[in-house]
Simulated assay, not measured.
Amino acid sequence: MALHICFSLGYKYESDLRKYLLTKSNTDIGPQSDLSKPIAINTTIEMQRLLSLDYVTGEMCTVSQILTKWYDKRLTWDAGRYGNITRLFIKPEQVWSPKIRIYNVRSPPLDIGQDFIIIHYNGTLVKEHLIMVYSNCNINPIAYPFDTQLCPMYAYIESSNYDYVRFSKFFVEKSIFWRHHVWDVRFKFYPQKVYDKSVGVIRFTLKRMTQFKDVASLLPLFFLSLSSILPFKLSIDHGERLSVSTTTFLSNVVYMTEFDKKMPLNTENYSAVQYFLIGSTILSGFSTIMAIIISLTAEQQRMRHIEPKQGNTDSKDDDSIADNKEAITKANVRKRRIGVFNNITFYIILVCLLTNSVYIIVILVKGSLGENLQ
């Protein structure tokens, strides 16, 4: 019986308190009495989880919990008159509350948690809600796969007059559940004013964690590049020179096409690996053309019998022997010229290959050190 009486009294106190607060609240008008003093809003955004970062489209999906605090002197009460109730849970639509908006997003944030507001007897209100945000990130792939991305997100308070509300304090915290298997995420936050709006800026810094698959994807690049110069170390008469050059060229074209599918669609920069692939493809194409030219030149010499066969010279006269020696000498000179041309081509491709390799190594090392190469 005593428990039933206590429960009934508690229900009555809470019911009376709700009626009292709802008669004093106004969902359309803020709590400030002096319009020259904006409402101070304390906001804490707890980053719960990075769900994904689509590298091709630049879409970043995060889950965040927004905690908002403000003061409304209209919603104060004497706890002693209402059964020592010091706080009350109500629905957001029953009182005025600041509307925190996130922009730089692809679609409106999704509320994935139940919103509620806690009113304390001293007039302090606390609102919590959990949202999922799909925001835009301008991907800079130049140091891929050792890249670091900067992705900003902006929060502001929606109001008909932005002079009436402002961020008094703005904090961003990282949840203990914040983990991602690809990106090491850090962020900075600071308030600023944009077009008379009080805006909180959150700048995400995402550094890619080195994985085996990323390193393994670079190995074919260097082996394909080496294959561009190997044909010129084979004998001029070797039948595999042309086939090796052609296979290397086609392999570079296929690898470059497949690699391009993993790169961002909307970006002003290209990956250093793409530049390397373009250079390697040009070198392999040049290698194929030069291998064809050298092979054709050597074949023409054979067809013209530049190297005459040395038969029995006892039956020949002195003039025939002299002509034969002269022909052999000219053939050797032409053969040496082809060899010199072959070596020059080899060193030209080698120098270009080394230059291309040094460029990509410098870019990837800077990227691995965490530099954002804009």
Rank of each mutant, 00 (worst) to 15 (best):
77 W>H: 00
155 A>I: 03
335 K>G: 13
234 L>W: 05
367 G>T: 05
301 Q>M: 07
275 Y>C: 06
98 P>A: 01
248 T>E: 04
23 T>H: 14
177 F>I: 05
371 E>Q: 09
276 F>T: 02
354 L>M: 04
198 S>V: 03
87 R>L: 10
369 L>K: 09
42 N>E: 08
360 I>S: 13
322 A>K: 05
25 S>T: 02
41 I>E: 02
302 R>D: 04
326 E>P: 07
17 L>K: 01
85 I>C: 00
75 L>T: 05
190 Y>C: 08
316 K>I: 10
1 M>P: 09
75 L>M: 01
291 A>I: 04
302 R>C: 03
302 R>P: 07
327 A>L: 14
51 L>A: 08
257 T>C: 04
113 G>N: 03
350 L>P: 12
351 V>D: 13
277 L>Q: 06
25 S>I: 04
278 I>E: 00
136 N>L: 10
39 I>E: 06
305 H>W: 13
114 Q>R: 11
296 L>H: 15
332 N>Y: 05
130 L>C: 08
8 S>A: 15
345 T>G: 06
140 N>S: 01
232 F>T: 06
323 D>R: 10
83 G>F: 04
8 S>G: 13
249 F>L: 06
160 S>V: 13
262 K>P: 05
145 P>V: 00
33 S>I: 10
187 F>S: 09
43 T>Y: 12
371 E>G: 09
58 G>W: 00
212 F>S: 15
266 N>C: 11
366 K>R: 11
59 E>G: 04
264 P>V: 00
243 S>E: 11
209 M>N: 13
241 R>N: 02
193 K>C: 02
52 S>F: 07
350 L>D: 12
51 L>W: 09
141 P>N: 00
325 K>G: 09
2 A>H: 14
93 E>C: 12
178 W>T: 10
80 G>C: 10
130 L>N: 04
39 I>F: 01
157 I>E: 01
298 A>L: 15
91 K>W: 06
223 F>Y: 09
162 Y>A: 12
18 R>S: 14
24 K>P: 13
300 Q>G: 08
239 G>R: 12
260 D>G: 15
273 V>Y: 09
162 Y>M: 04
57 T>W: 12
354 L>E: 15
241 R>P: 11
137 C>M: 01
121 Y>N: 03
172 V>K: 01
74 R>Q: 02
308 P>V: 00
129 H>Q: 15
318 D>Y: 03
48 Q>V: 08
307 E>N: 03
97 S>E: 07
92 P>N: 00
298 A>T: 11
317 D>S: 01
318 D>V: 04
20 Y>W: 06
186 R>H: 15
346 F>T: 03
58 G>A: 02
232 F>R: 01
67 L>D: 05
265 L>E: 08
332 N>C: 10
351 V>F: 13
335 K>A: 15
114 Q>D: 07
161 N>K: 10
328 I>A: 13
323 D>V: 15
239 G>P: 15
354 L>K: 13
321 I>P: 00
